[in-house]
């Protein structure tokens, strides 16, 4: 039982990496969904299960993204760790029963992330479009993640 509960702690890492690896090949009308798409699981777990989203897993996910895309290693890790660090202070303000409020929080978080990211790698308009797509996809992905969060422990 202890092994299973330890395995559950890997769910955030696995969902982030899965969204990252599958999402980076997806496009809507030629516009990529990444990097904004993998921010959805990152934000969700930082907000709702900070005890599951271990810092090391965020660090590793960032390294994976950078190496896959051919960037200098460390930028995404740094931004994800910064998100986790700031997340603990912002969490009490954002977490409410009203979904639109959480959704809006994601909009602000991902926008901030993409601004810093865009400045670091000379990003372009594609980043803004990817942000808009991720905003639209947030409810679906969050619904899927909430099922993982609530149902899996109950099965265990």
């Amino acid at each position: 039982m202890k092994i299973i509960s330890v395995c559950l702690r890997f769910i955030p890492f696995l969902t982030i990496v899965f969204t990252m690896f599958v999402g980076c090949t997806l496009r809507i009308a030629g516009t990529p969904l990444c990097p904004a798409l993998f921010l959805i699981p990152s934000y969700y777990w930082i907000l709702f299960r900070p005890d599951w989203s271990l810092l090391w897993s965020l660090f590793a996910a960032g390294l994976f993204y950078d190496s896959l895309m051919g960037y200098t290693l460390g930028l995404s890790s740094f931004l994800l760790l910064l998100s986790a660090f700031l997340g603990q202070y912002i969490r009490p303000l954002v977490i409410t029963y009203y979904f639109p409020f959480v959704w809006g929080g994601f909009g602000l978080y991902s926008f901030g992330y993409l601004i810093v990211y865009g400045f670091s790698i000379e990003g372009n308009l594609m980043l803004v479009l990817s942000w808009l797509y991720s905003l639209m996809l947030y409810p679906i992905v969050a619904w899927w993640l909430s099922h993982l969060q609530n149902r899996l422990p109950s099965y265990v």
Binding site: C24, T25, R27, T31, P32, C34, P35, L68, M69, G70, I121, E122, G123, N124, M126, L127, L129, S130
Partner: peptide
């Protein structure tokens, strides 16, 4: 294998 794309790099 695949063509990952994030709007910046084409590979």
């Amino acid at each position: 294998l695949s063509n990952p794309y994030d709007g910046m790099h084409h590979f």
